[in-house]
Every structure is written in C-alpha cells, then in structure tokens.
Simulated scan of single mutants.
Amino acid sequence: MHGLGGIGKTTLALHYAHRHRTDYTLIWWINAASPDEIETSLTTLTHTLVPGWAATAGRSAQVAWAMQWLTWHPGWLLIHDNVEDWLCSP
C-alpha cells in the first residue's frame, strides 16, 4: 500500500501483521528509508536468528545470510516501512 505520509499506512500494516501473525513463519519489519537502513534491518534479522555467528560476521555477510535465509524459508512477511520514491523508481 502507498499514500501520503501520516494517513495510517504503518498502523494498518502493524494491525495486519498482528492479526495474521500465525499465518507466517516470520514477520519482520524493514526500515526502507534508505539502502543503508534496509541493510541494517537485515543484519538485525541475522542477529536475531543466529546471534553467535552474527557477532563475528561482517555486515555484508550478515545481509547475504538474511537474504539466503529468506530464500530457503517460505511463508514470511516483510513489511517495508518508510519507502521513499527512490525504491519505487523504474
């Protein structure tokens, strides 16, 4: 969903995620305000799922691990919050 700021998109996404939490194997919030924020959200996912390994791995390895985990494990929901126009451009 998309629209002007402040109309309740984030709140609606939060309510959806809460209501359907049993329908997904993982629900993860991605701060998509910038490419760096997306990477930070993915590294946080890695730290949550494999904290011991993530503590010693570099940032790019953590991002790659999160992306690979998502590829191998179906049934997840990623909510991209604060998406800017740069992400939606062709």
Rank of each mutant, 00 (worst) to 15 (best):
P74Q: 10
A55I: 03
G52P: 09
L14E: 14
D81R: 08
M67R: 11
W53V: 09
R21G: 03
H2N: 15
G6C: 07
Q62S: 12
T10K: 01
A55N: 06
S41K: 00
H20G: 06
L26V: 05
W76I: 02
T22L: 13
Y24M: 01
Q62D: 09
H18N: 11
G3H: 07
W65G: 00
H80Q: 10
E39M: 09
T25N: 07
R59S: 10
P51V: 04
Y16I: 01
A66V: 06
Y24L: 02
H47I: 05
L14A: 15
A13C: 04
E84G: 14
L4M: 15
A55S: 10
T46R: 04
E37K: 13
G5L: 01
H80I: 11
G6I: 06
H80M: 13
I30S: 01
D36V: 09
D81I: 07
A54H: 00
E84D: 14
K9C: 02
G75W: 04
T44Q: 11
T71R: 13
P35F: 05
L87A: 15
E84L: 13
L14N: 13
T71H: 12
Y16A: 01
P90M: 09
H20R: 11
S34T: 11
H47F: 07
S60H: 14
E84W: 13
S34H: 06
R21M: 03
I7H: 00
H15K: 15
L87V: 15
L45D: 04
H47K: 10
D85A: 15
S60C: 09
W65H: 01
I79E: 02
S60D: 13
R19P: 06
L45R: 02
P51H: 00
H20Q: 12
R21F: 06
A57F: 00
G52Y: 08
L12R: 08
L26F: 06
T22S: 15
G5D: 02
V63M: 07
P51W: 00
T46L: 02
A57R: 05
W86H: 13
A32R: 02
Y24R: 03
R59G: 07
L26Q: 04
L45Q: 07
L45W: 05
L14K: 14
V50S: 08
P74F: 00
T11E: 14
A54I: 00
A32H: 05
W72T: 15
D23F: 08
E37S: 12
H18F: 07
L87Q: 13
T48P: 05
W69Q: 04
A17V: 02
Y16M: 02
G5H: 03
Q62T: 10
H2I: 15
I79Y: 01
V50W: 04
R59E: 11
L87H: 15
L78C: 02
N82G: 07
H47E: 10
G52D: 12
Q62A: 12
R21V: 06
I79G: 00
H80W: 14
T25L: 04
T46K: 00
W76H: 05
V63R: 06
S41I: 03
T44E: 10
R19Q: 13
T56H: 09
G75C: 02
N31E: 08
L14R: 14
H73Q: 09
W65F: 05
N31A: 07
L78Q: 03
W86F: 14
D85L: 14
V63G: 05
A54K: 00
H15E: 15
H80F: 15
G52L: 11
W65E: 01
L45F: 08
D85Q: 14
T43V: 12
I7G: 03
P74G: 08
P51E: 00
